[in-house]
């Protein structure tokens, strides 16, 4: 996804090959960036989550389970629970004027935003226990405040936090990480925007806590099977550590709020 964007709205003042030469990665190849997690940032929503992965900032609000706003599909579909999603990239998250203009900011949903929302629904459809919410719609509202690479991974983490915060029954919190394969055949975990654009391939993996299973794999670029497998294995390991940090954060939040609950 990131590679495709650079092809269309690429950096106008810095050609990609010179970016690659000048850029130095300051952390080890298999270390993700600093992670900031928060829940309850949106007061009006049923649940919300905020994630910062380095400079990438994403906020997700969950409304639901509530009666659906728009009835879609045939009559048979409306008795099942469903998830809808709206992703918005804030207008200040684009890094050049040209890309803002081409992305049609302010003129409705761009295709990139629509693709991101269908992907997010695809990740969480098997995760949310929809049988417990018949006839209801769980609406996810995602705002990408700043995109410095790995935006989808940040979105997935923030959505897991938001769903947990909203007390919606889910099979597990989902952790997600992106691995880029650079032109020098290195595996870079959690790439930022420059690394994503210069990469030969990008793999984003989302997995639940019991990591024997994977929720979703997203892949861009051409990779041989061995490289693909190693990248996925590396991504799974790193995603597990991120998942553990997310669990610890949630448990610490619980301990902090050890007051009697407000509703009986």
């Amino acid at each position: 996804m990131e590679r495709r964007i650079s092809q269309r709205y690429g950096p106008f003042f810095e050609p990609i090959h010179s970016l690659e030469r000048e850029y130095q990665r300051t952390r080890p190849n298999n270390a993700p960036r600093s992670l900031v997690l928060n829940t309850g940032t949106v007061v009006d929503a049923a649940g919300s989550g905020y994630v910062e992965l380095g400079k990438t900032k994403v906020i997700v609000a969950v409304q639901g389970p509530r009666p659906p706003i728009r009835i879609r599909g045939g009559v048979e579909n409306t008795m099942n629970g469903r998830i809808t999603c709206e992703v918005v990239k804030s207008s200040f998250c684009y890094y050049s004027y040209e890309s803002t203009r081409m992305a049609n900011v302010g003129r409705g949903v761009s295709e990139e935003e629509r693709l991101l929302s269908t992907r997010l629904v695809r990740v969480f459809e098997p995760i949310v226990i929809l049988d417990k919410y018949p006839k209801c719609s769980i609406d996810l509202y995602v705002v990408i405040l700043e995109d410095d690479g790995s935006a989808f991974a940040a979105m997935t983490l923030a959505t897991s936090l938001a769903l947990a915060d909203a007390s919606i029954e889910i099979i597990s919190v989902v952790s997600s990480v992106t691995v880029a394969i650079s032109t020098k055949q290195e595996y870079l975990v959690d790439p930022d925007r420059t690394e994503s654009e210069c990469a030969v391939g990008l793999i984003t993996v989302s997995l639940p806590l019991h990591a024997a299973q994977l929720c979703e794999i997203q892949h861009t670029g051409k990779l041989s099977i061995q490289v693909w497998l190693s990248a996925v294995q590396l991504a799974v390991e790193v995603a597990q550590t991120i998942g553990n940090s997310m669990c610890q954060f949630l448990l610490q939040e619980m301990e902090k709020n050890e007051t009697p609950s407000l509703c009986s």
């Binding site: 459809e125 098997p126 099979i171 997995l207 990591a211 299973q213 994977l214 929720c215 979703e216 799974v236």
Partner: peptide, 9 residues
Amino acid sequence: VYSFGLLDA
């Protein structure tokens, strides 16, 4: 790659 659902690694 396009994937959907919980797949065994």
